[in-house]
Write a protein that binds this DNA or RNA. Structure first.
Length: 852
RNA sequence: GCCCGCGUGGUGGAAUGGUAGACACAGGGGACUUAAAAUCCCUAGGCAGGAAUGCCGUGCCGGUUCGAGUCCGGCCGCGGGUACCA
């Protein structure tokens, strides 16, 4: 008897698939097409289990769709620009390009043995000049179409390293390398005008039926459409009025101060003459720019001395403060504070001793606000007393609408729809990204590069000398032979833009490029016409907002610039967000800085973790991340047990949308099971073919149930449940005494049902049993409805909602007959004690509940 | 802080509002073996009980319902995102 030998089997079948060329995507008008895409990886250097999980899920779908007669496109590429490559070059010399391509090679080498049904001929990396050159062409078309803007924006500035820092590089307000206090600095930056599309980006979410509701909700909240009002406050000193935006104008009566952003014109105008204001504004400039940090920071302010009149009660004067919590780029950069009905404003008012006055009460109550603001939901009824807009007991929403109408009628303000969504700043002051294809000319201003000069390629070296990445700042700035070029318009000496694009740009259109990856234009009409949209997109929930929103914007921009058909406005028909593979983090502290240890360095003793003799801290269950070193390498599993085991295991234990904590046990169990299946096939192959069997019908009935359950499991991303059914059916088959013919049919069907998960093993079984051609080409088995019909059904009997007994009845037994049987049931008779039940609930085919 | 999720045995988890714990891991018992490994069989939520069986049980508190892991409200804990990590 031979043994299950995955190494031999997997190499053999991978070769057979390659020779048959069955994974090459071929447009075939006679077939329905299916485009399945997993979010492409960043080439960090090694594949981790999260990648394996992601690509295996996609592969299950791709192989399943292929066996149901679809022309499948299942490509792979690399999201290859980004900071880690520059950091690696900074830390250990070398070149980001070399580092990146070496990593890509390694990862492809690691992916190939997994047996994924990928069309490798379509592979590209976003750092290929052929790709980013087309991206530059897209940029120029979008610029011409008015979809791009240039305006000032604030960045994190490290005054010691003289460089711009990413948020990730700012730790407790200090630069990660220099340790210097980070400042804000204003630079002129390029922006995609995504906020112009805010309305349609919200509205279209409603049609994305095959997207998770949570993702649609997150995007809706992120875009944050709100109806509010812009109110004009006149200054008592006759200066320019201050415009405030509010979504809660119903609280206007309680307005007691105005807060403006530190960079609001009112604040800026006073800065020169008021050292105290200047100092406060300066302090605000040093604050962390992230939203989380801003919101969590202590709310502080300073009185400017400026006063405005309350628009409804002109004899009330409101002080104008600068608040560190007001954002210049949302609304008008100024808000009115109503302490009674906003907790933040109340805290602020108590801190700085500002008045608190109710605009309304809850009905029947006139309690003044203490330290808790009165903030009813918009659907709650509130009671307005002495209100200018004449509202009485109404819901807050009605009051908001009435107030907006009233303000508009009085000419004191205008109703406005505001969005939380800001324009997408794409400029990055970094080397390893797609160069922005424009030239700055003293005479002509900003001049787009000519398309025939694309790609604007990144220089590999600097006039023959290696680029020194250890010097902070953007090397393109100190690269005269690359930077200094003639103006494309007038020919005078000019300079290239040295900023590169945000890497989110690269990933916002790659899915269209896969349809014609070598085309001379960004897309190719016939190819996008056939393959778009992506039928199933699969990736991490961490991309729920930014990547997916930017991609949706880009698809629309590509329609406007003629690169996509109208039908591709929503490029991803269905989205599945998988959970992450998590793993404990092992952490120690050295010289005041955290040090992260690799799992393989750690030994576990008595629930404590040690590296050598040193005990280290264990942080349970965190996202696998290169910077935390808690990454598990799948290669060990593959070389020990084979790809089929790795694939089976990552699908078997956890539901795909949930996070899974990686543990070493379990992989072995998967291997044992696959060995069992292989041995089963072997045994059936050696059966006496003429011997009579028993229970053929029972076996085949179970087989058809298994087909039904696995099919629905695969179609609904219930891979773990599908695998549970496969375990159960394998056990049934093992115990079966059925004839050779029935067992052979069962094991071949089993192989087919397992094929999306364990394609190599399935091919081997298929071949052993004399299957026709490749298992991967065989049509998906169909469940025979006639075999699935059951004639009896078991009904649990509940008494007061608790299960007490069960009865088996004919499937179509009428309700009244079931009732008679139930009332005659021993447990029921005993519980009733001669009384009639209060209620008898019979749900046909489901359950019976006797209420006593 | 804000937005969005998640929470079920020792563990991963299953369960269209209808028998909570499928399937699997680890465990316990047994068969085979000189022995071990491998394999196979049985067992298994907790408490009480010899058993039959009873009570309790899906993070916590409350609600809707004949019936709630599932729906609603309020908490607690954990995770993701928070616009320059990808």
């Amino acid at each position: 008897m031979s043994r299950y030998d995955p190494a031999a089997i997997e190499a053999r079948w991978q070769k057979a698939w390659e020779e048959a060329g069955i994974f090459k995507a071929k447009a075939d008008p006679s077939k329905p097409k299916y485009y399945v895409l997993e979010m492409f990886p960043y080439p960090s250097g090694r594949l981790h289990m999260g990648h394996v999980r992601n690509y295996t899920m996609g592969d299950v779908i791709a192989r399943y769709k292929s066996s149901t007669g679809h022309a499948v496109l299942h490509p792979m590429g690399f999201d290859a620009f980004g900071m880690p490559a520059e950091n690696a070059a900074m830390a250990s010399g070398g070149h980001p390009k070399d580092w990146t391509y070496a990593n890509i090679d390694t990862m492809v080498e690691q992916m190939k043995p997994l047996g994924l049904s990928l069309d490798w001929t379509r592979m590209f990396a976003t750092c290929d000049p052929e790709y980013y050159g087309q991206q530059q062409a897209l940029f120029l078309d979008m610029l011409a179409a008015g979809l791009i803007d240039r305006k000032p924006a604030v960045v994190n500035w490290d005054p010691v390293d003289m460089t711009v820092l990413a948020n990730e590089q700012v730790i407790d307000g200090k630069g990660w390398r220099s340790g210097a206090e980070v400042e804000k600095r204003e630079l002129t930056q390029w922006f995609f005008k995504i906020s112009d599309m805010a309305d349609e980006l919200v509205d279209a979410l409603g049609d994305l039926d095959d997207w998770p509701a949570k993702v649609r909700l997150m995007q809706e909240n992120w875009i944050g459409r709100s109806r509010g009002i812009e109110i004009r406050f006149e200054r008592t000193d006759g200066g320019d009025p201050i415009l405030c935006y509010s979504t809660r104008p119903d609280t206007m009566r309680g307005a007691s101060f105005i807060a403006v952003a530190p960079d609001h014109p009112v604040a800026k105008a006073l800065e020169a003459d008021r050292p105290d204001l200047a100092a406060f504004i300066d302090e605000c400039r040093k604050m962390d720019t992230t939203e989380a940090a801003m919101e969590k920071a202590e709310k502080k302010g300073i009185d400017t001395g400026v006063r405005v009149k309350h628009p409804v009660y002109p004899d009330r004067e409101l002080p104008v403060w600068i608040g560190n919590f007001v954002l210049m780029d949302y609304g008008t950069g100024a808000v009115f504070g109503c302490p009674a009905h906003d907790q933040r404003d109340l805290d602020f008012a108590r801190k700085y001793d500002l008045p608190v006055q109710n605009a309304f009460y809850m009905p029947g109550d006139t309690t003044e606000v203490g330290n808790e603001a009165l903030v009813p939901a918009k659907s709650e009824v509130v009671s307005f007393i002495d209100h200018f807009a004449g509202v009485g007991d109404v819901t807050s929403q009605e009051a908001i609408d009435a107030t907006i109408d009233w303000f508009e009628a009085q000419g004191l303000g205008t109703g406005q729809t505001q969005f939380r969504l800001r324009d997408w700043g794409l400029s990055r002051q970094r080397y390893w990204g797609c160069p922005i294809p424009v030239v700055h000319c003293d005479a002509c201003g900003v001049v787009p590069e000519k398309k025939e000069n694309l790609p604007v390629e990144l220089p590999y070296d600097n006039a023959g000398e290696p680029i020194d990445f250890s010097i902070p700042g953007n090397p393109l700035d100190r690269h005269p032979t690359w930077r200094d070029v003639p103006c494309p318009a007038c020919g005078a000496p000019a300079q290239r833009e040295t900023d590169t694009m945000d890497t989110f740009v690269d990933s916002s259109w790659y899915y269209t490029r896969f349809t014609a990856p070598r085309a001379e234009t960004p897309t190719e009409p016939e190819a996008v016409g056939y393959w778009m949209n992506v039928d199933q997109y699969i990736g991490g929930i961490e991309h729920a907002i930014l990547h997916l929103l930017y991609s949706r914007f880009f698809a629309r921009a590509m329609i406007k610039t003629g690169h996509l058909p109208e039908t591709a406005a929503e490029p991803f028909d269905a989205l599945f967000t998988q959970g992450m593979v998590t793993h404990a983090i092992y952490k120690s502290v050295k010289d005041g800085r955290p040090v992260y240890h690799y799992p393989e360095e750690v030994t576990l003793k008595d629930g404590k973790a040690f590296v050598g003799e040193m005990e280290v801290e264990t942080v349970p269950s965190a996202k696998m991340s290169k910077s935390k070193n808690n990454v598990v390498d799948p290669q060990a599993i593959v070389s020990q047990f084979g790809a089929d085991t790795a694939r089976w295991f990552v699908l078997s234990d956890s539901p795909p949308e949930r996070d899974v904590e990686w543990t070493a046990s379990g992989a072995e169990a998967a291997y044992k099971h696959l060995t069992r299946v292989w041995n089963l096939c072997d045994r059936i192959g050696q059966m006496d073919q003429s011997a009579p069997g028993q229970g053929d019908q029972d076996l085949l009935r179970e087989m058809h149930k298994c087909i039904r359950d696995v099919t629905s499991g695969v179609e609904s991303f219930g891979f773990n449940a599908a695998i549970a059914k496969l375990y159960a059916f394998t056990a049934t088959l093992q115990k079966s005494k059925a004839s050779h013919a029935a067992q052979r049919e069962a094991v071949m069907t089993l192989a087919q049902l397992m094929a999306p998960m364990t394609p190599h093993l399935s091919e081997d079984i298929w071949a052993h049993q004399g299957g026709d051609g490749l298992c991967a080409r065989a049509p998906w088995p169909q469940a025979d409805e006639a075999m699935l019909v059951e004639d009896t059904v078991t009904l649990p009997i509940q008494i007061n909602g608790k299960r007490r007994d069960e009865i088996t009845v004919a499937k179509d037994m009428p309700k009244d007959e079931v009732e008679k049987l139930v009332l005659a049931n021993d447990a029921v008779v005993k519980a009733l004690g001669g009384n009639a039940p209060k209620k008898l609930i019979v749900v046909p085919g489901r359950i019976v509940n006797v209420v006593i």
